Amino acid sequence: MKATTETQKKSVKLHNEKDQGKKDFLDSFIKVAFVPMLIISILAMLSPIYILIKVSISKPVDVLTQHPTFLIHNFTGEHWIKVLQSGLLFPALSKSFIVATATAIVAIILATPASYVISRLPKKTKYIIVLALFFTRMFPNVGIALPISVKFIRWNLIDTHAGLILAHLIEQLPFITWILVGTFEVIPQDLEKSAMIDGASRIRALWSVILPNAAPGLAVAAMYVWLNSWNEFTYALYLSLSTNTLPLQIYYYVNRGGFFQTATYATILMIPVLIVTYALQRYIRSDYLGGAIKG
């Protein structure tokens, strides 16, 4: 009996040593492979951007060949000059920027109070409302864009900034409301209760206490809406006649087969995205609520 017990102990010890050896090997592999995998991932993400920029500043001899090189050998600004002198860039750039910015601002103004109220509702009611919001996104944009364009013709909103902003809000409001509901849920209600005990009204508590703590979520929501509106194509195709947005302008050159102008417009389309993301990323901090409550 004693020999059997000792054998079992040795078996368990041997099994534990094997498990520990596997764990040590896995940890060592992760430590060794982490940097190369990170570098490969970064290169995989940056390569399309580099190729886009390369095409926009390379001569045709470097691109329109059977075996194009990865590096830039014959630099040229001809494609950028053509785009800048075409007279089509700045109207499209202006329209895209105005529509995206206005859509983000209006969406934040409308969704913030609604999301705050929804976040303070009972759990079952909150769940039903969020599901109802997502139900509106079950229908494809193409199926919605056509009846909207017919209605906007009657309202004289075709080819206007206001019409495109309203169309973008249809798509963006459910998602931004969902994002902000989650943001307000993680903010302790004790904060607003403490402010109200100190004499602040509910509106004052929302403005002075809740919204500052919700800044990361608001930044994420604003960034999400702005980027989606900036890149939106379907509604712009139905609702734009005389002045295109930048995605429509890219589509125009793709149809014409203009590789270099397409790459140039796509590079220009990417630049504001980088600027907006960099400007708002400072608000996205996981420890923003770390010092909100003490004790």
Rank of each mutant, 00 (worst) to 15 (best):
Ile108Phe: 07
Thr76Gln: 11
Ser94Tyr: 02
Ser86Asn: 12
Trp80Pro: 01
Lys82Val: 12
Ile98Trp: 04
Val99Tyr: 02
Ser86Tyr: 06
Lys95Arg: 15
Thr101Gln: 01
Gln85Glu: 15
Lys95Asp: 03
Phe97Glu: 05
Val99Pro: 04
Ile108Ala: 13
Thr76Gly: 09
His79Met: 09
Ala107Gly: 01
Ile108Ser: 07
Leu89Tyr: 10
Ala104Met: 12
His79Leu: 09
Ile98Gln: 08
Gln85Lys: 15
Trp80Asn: 05
His79Val: 10
Ile98Phe: 03
Ser86Thr: 10
Glu78His: 14
Lys95Ala: 04
Leu89Lys: 06
Ser86Asp: 11
Pro91Val: 03
Leu89His: 13
Ile81Leu: 15
Ala107Tyr: 04
Val99Thr: 13
Gly77His: 06
Ala104Trp: 00
Ala107Leu: 05
Trp80Tyr: 15
Gly77Ala: 07
Val106Ala: 13
Ala92Phe: 09
Pro91Ser: 11
Leu93His: 04
Trp80Asp: 04
Val83Thr: 07
Leu84Phe: 15
Thr76Tyr: 08
Leu89Asp: 05
Leu89Met: 12
Gly87Cys: 08
Phe90Met: 15
Lys95Gly: 02
Leu88His: 11
Leu89Gln: 09
Glu78Phe: 14
Val99Ile: 13
Ala104His: 00
Ser86Ile: 14
Gly87Asn: 10
Val106Tyr: 10
Ile108Gly: 01
Gly77Met: 13
His79Ile: 09
Pro91Ala: 13
Ile105Phe: 08
Ile105Thr: 07
Ala92Glu: 09
Phe90Asp: 05
Ile81Ala: 15
Thr103Ile: 08
Lys95Tyr: 03
Ala104Ser: 13
Ile105Gln: 03
Trp80Val: 13
Ser96Glu: 06
Pro91Met: 05
Lys95Cys: 00
Gln85Ile: 11
Ile108Asp: 05
Lys82Thr: 11
Ser96Val: 07
Lys95Asn: 09
Pro91Asp: 10
Leu88Trp: 10
Glu78Asn: 14
Thr101Glu: 01
Thr76Cys: 12
Thr103Glu: 05
Ala100Pro: 00
Ile98Val: 14
Val83Ala: 04
Ile98Met: 14
Leu84His: 07
Ile105Trp: 02
Ala104Ile: 02
Lys82Phe: 11
Val83Glu: 02
Gln85Trp: 10
Ala104Val: 01
Ala104Cys: 06
Ala92Ser: 15
Thr103Val: 07
Ala104Gly: 08
Ala100Gly: 05
Ala104Lys: 02
Phe90Ile: 12
Ala102Gly: 00
Ala102Ile: 13
Gly87Trp: 02
Ala100Asn: 10
Gly77Tyr: 08
Ile108Arg: 05
Leu93Gln: 02
Trp80Thr: 08
Ala107Pro: 00
Ala100Gln: 09
Leu88Asn: 13
Ala100Leu: 01
Ala104Asp: 07
Thr101Lys: 05
Val99Cys: 05
Ala102Leu: 11
Leu84Ala: 14
Ala102Tyr: 01
Thr76Lys: 09
Ile105Glu: 02
Ala100Trp: 00
Ser94Arg: 14
Thr103Lys: 03
Ala104Glu: 01
Phe90Pro: 01
Ile98His: 03
Gln85His: 13
Val106Cys: 11
Ile98Leu: 15
Leu93Phe: 15
Ser94Pro: 00
Gly87Tyr: 02
His79Thr: 10
Ser94Gly: 12
Glu78Gly: 15
Ile81Gln: 14
Thr76Arg: 06
Phe90Cys: 08
Val106His: 06
Gly87Pro: 01
Gly87Phe: 02
Leu88Pro: 03
Gln85Arg: 13
Thr103Gly: 05
His79Ser: 11
Glu78Thr: 14
Leu84Trp: 12
Ala102Glu: 04
Val83Trp: 01
Ser96Cys: 12
